[in-house]
Amino acid sequence: MQSRGNNKKIQMSKYMVYIVLAVVFVFFAITLRDNGFASTQNLLNILRQTAMISIMSVAGVFVLSAGQIDLTVGSNTAMSAMLVALVLKSTNNIFLALIVALIFGVAVGVINGLLVTRLGLPAFLATLGMMQVIRGAAMWITNTEAVPISNTVFNTIFGTGFVGPISVLILWTILFYILGYILFNRTPFGKHTLATGGNQMAAQYSGIKVQRIKMYVFMLSGALSAFAGVLYAGRMQSGRYSFGDGDEMSVIASVVLGGASMAGGSGSMIGALAGSILMGMISNALILANLSSAQQKMVNGFIIIAAVALSNLAQRKKSN
């Protein structure tokens, strides 16, 4: 009887993000009905605005499931956007700009992975240091000035374009979640990632190369962060050092709200998407309610605290 009760609690925790998402939506739809919160246009706008966080959260599921953390995602997006803008300014070659950005993102992931697997640094401290290095480099290479992008084809494909009423940013999000879901739930890599985060010692004894798994999840995080930077550049039609500022916390909160544990060993791709939409929905509602940027930061801070608290609570229920 006790185990059955615990299973019900665990199942309830898995669906918590969807329940909260539905409750928050209904609440804002009623309180902000005069502001058009529940209109189709605004809901599509929320999905468009959260696209970059959502895409980075795909990799975030792998990172947290492996028991790691990556604080470089925000600074990585900024530097990647700057590189895209600089390459386009010099060559106007879209393919080359994409390759440069993605190579940079993967390189950041490799460095993070080496710091964790070879030097044995805690992921939090290693990526915290790298975050400062990359953000500083993004500020330094153009002396904090924005680099405009005049290539309309690039901007349309990666930011400002629409297919009917649907933004290309939403379409990119759907594509990455389909691929992420398959990779996480239908391949040995996803299972090995969960095993690495759940019990590293047991994973090693079962033949899983846990250090390699950690390296791969950091590389994946770097690549998707770089692509998010490409989308930032396309949407804003420029590269700016300030892109992605604070996104690392939003990604972590989205993934944890979606059912991942900060301790590793669990995660949900669909849950992470729901978590990112929830974060975007709240941010959108706060703007419609005319709250100041300072008040919005406070609310986002409370959301992050709540996400970690829910993660710890779910972890305790599983262990009991």
Results as ranks from 00 to 15, higher is better:
D245E: 12
G244N: 00
N284A: 11
D245G: 04
K297M: 15
A253I: 08
V299A: 10
S292P: 04
A289K: 14
I287T: 14
I252Q: 06
F243R: 03
A294P: 04
G275D: 06
M249E: 02
Q296F: 06
L291S: 13
M279E: 05
D245Q: 14
I305A: 13
L291A: 10
N290Q: 13
S268N: 13
I277W: 01
A274E: 03
I282Q: 12
S268H: 10
G259V: 07
A306P: 09
G265F: 09
N284F: 02
A289R: 09
G246Y: 02
I277F: 14
L257R: 11
I303N: 05
S242K: 01
M281G: 15
L257S: 07
S292H: 07
A306Q: 11
A274W: 03
F302H: 04
A294M: 12
K297R: 13
I303R: 12
L291M: 15
G244M: 00
I277E: 02
S276R: 04
I277T: 08
A306M: 13
G264H: 00
D247W: 13
G264Q: 03
A306S: 14
A253E: 02
L257W: 13
I270Q: 09
I252F: 01
L273A: 07
Q296N: 00
F302E: 02
L273D: 12
A260S: 15
A260M: 10
S254W: 08
A263Y: 03
A260L: 05
A289S: 15
G271R: 09
M298A: 15
A285I: 08
L286W: 06
A253K: 13
V255H: 10
I305D: 05
G264R: 03
E248D: 08
I305S: 12
A253P: 04
M281C: 04
F302L: 15
E248L: 01
I282L: 05
L291Y: 15
Q296K: 14
M279D: 09
A274V: 08
G244Q: 00
D245L: 10
A260T: 03
S266A: 15
G258T: 09
I252W: 01
I305E: 10
A306E: 04
F243W: 00
S292Y: 10
Q296I: 15
M262C: 00
M279F: 13
Q295S: 15
L278P: 10
M249K: 04
G258C: 02
G301R: 14
G246H: 07
I277R: 06
G267P: 01
A260G: 01
M298Q: 12
I282R: 11
M262F: 11
I270T: 14
G246N: 13
L273Q: 05
Q296Y: 01
L278S: 00
M279C: 10
